[in-house]
Design a protein around this nucleic acid. Sequence first.
DNA 1: TACGATTATATGTCTAGACATATAAGTCAA
DNA 2: TTGACTTATATGTCTAGACATATAATCGTA
Lengths: 242, 242
Amino acid sequence: MSLATDAADKPTLYKRIRADIEKRILTGEWPPGHRIPFEHELVARYGCSRMTVNKALSELAQADLIERRRRAGSFVRRPQHQSAVLKIADIRAEITALGRGYGYELISRKLRAATAADRERLGVKKAGKVVSIACRHSADNVPFAVEDRLIDLASVPNAATADFSREPPGSWLLHHVPWTEAEHTISAIVADDRTAEALDIAVGAPCLVIDRYTWRSARTITAVRLLYPGDSHRLVARFKGG
Amino acid sequence: MSLATDAADKPTLYKRIRADIEKRILTGEWPPGHRIPFEHELVARYGCSRMTVNKALSELAQADLIERRRRAGSFVRRPQHQSAVLKIADIRAEITALGRGYGYELISRKLRAATAADRERLGVKKAGKVVSIACRHSADNVPFAVEDRLIDLASVPNAATADFSREPPGSWLLHHVPWTEAEHTISAIVADDRTAEALDIAVGAPCLVIDRYTWRSARTITAVRLLYPGDSHRLVARFKGG
DNA sequence: TACGATTATATGTCTAGACATATAAGTCAA
DNA sequence: TTGACTTATATGTCTAGACATATAATCGTA
């Protein structure tokens, strides 16, 4: 029988079933489109109840490894190369995680009625007030990134009185705004005069640009543009698991 | 009772429980760290069995929205701003999705014993054979990206005989290699002479660089570097759900 | 042959229990 | 006060059933 052949750390049964199937998919033994055994077959093979194999298969389905179709069975999905998880850390956390000294400097902070450009950038229609912030992050006193941010006060009223001279707006928002969705756009530019000076790099040096729009259930919260020296900063995105 | 008050499309009970909790987290009513009701409390509230609420909570845990701790309860996790889903499409699919004409051109293909540099790039120790490919993708006859790829023949032996003069190696691999993991590193550079010529842009223009390493259960499959004109190409990463 | 109705079946959801297990919290002794 | 021991409890896993439901396959009819 297949019980307890390698039960060194004794994983639970449904996890073993899940791992067994995952392995066959990973090795290519069961290629995309392959129909994996029916629940009742797995029940027979593992000698357990249907709920147990159902739990294993449900998790595989939730992780997009298999697709389940009523009456037809469960099928291996084709790999989705295009989907990767990108970890864009809070800058302060990122720098301290690297064991380097974090520095922050507020360059400007303005409270104003939203201009047409502001409204377009935030994707809102109604007029309202915004806070515009420019600041700089540094690691061991070397410029790390410059930030240009707009906060919609209609969504985050107490940002009007927050003290951004000490706390970076990203960290402040992280701790004061509950749950958010965000969209990041990544591109590359070359440094103009102002950027080059702020980042202490040469004019014409490559910069990585992250534009991030954050909202909560259709309410825009903030729009931010981050500029990093392109030759020293890298973003890592990992596909599926790990 | 709470049954069927808005059962327009009649979602199942466990899904309704999950949605209810998700909503409270999203709105901030239950902030990060908040302990959500115990299973037995939800059982009482919804008048169902524990397995049903357990299924709802398990899925929320699998989606990283909550954290479950034995004896302590289940807690709302803090939003992970840094985690975003980046969709890096197959280039051909991306271009055709834009409604533009896809063009592909093989620049060079070499089969050789892995050099020390190849081995380092692939992250393998043993000597073996590799295929080195350079090619160019274009949209409506305008250069879209240049690709520089290395395939480990120890992992993908039939890549030795694949015809990459017609089919891009990315598409070929997608259809011939079962399931993979990948890591993407995104950075910015300025175009050197060779890159500028290949992409038909000016020397010194910004380029977005994607380095992708693909493997399957610790076996390296391929390493690829993609160079895009930085001012025209953008990567979009969306955070959590949607 | 084409189409509509029927049937068989695999998954979807749910129950009312059970025992296992990690651990927060309380208890007691050094 | 501190550390070791005990206990209570919430989650983790599992069972042996049940009925619901979507749909592939079959059958019958035009």
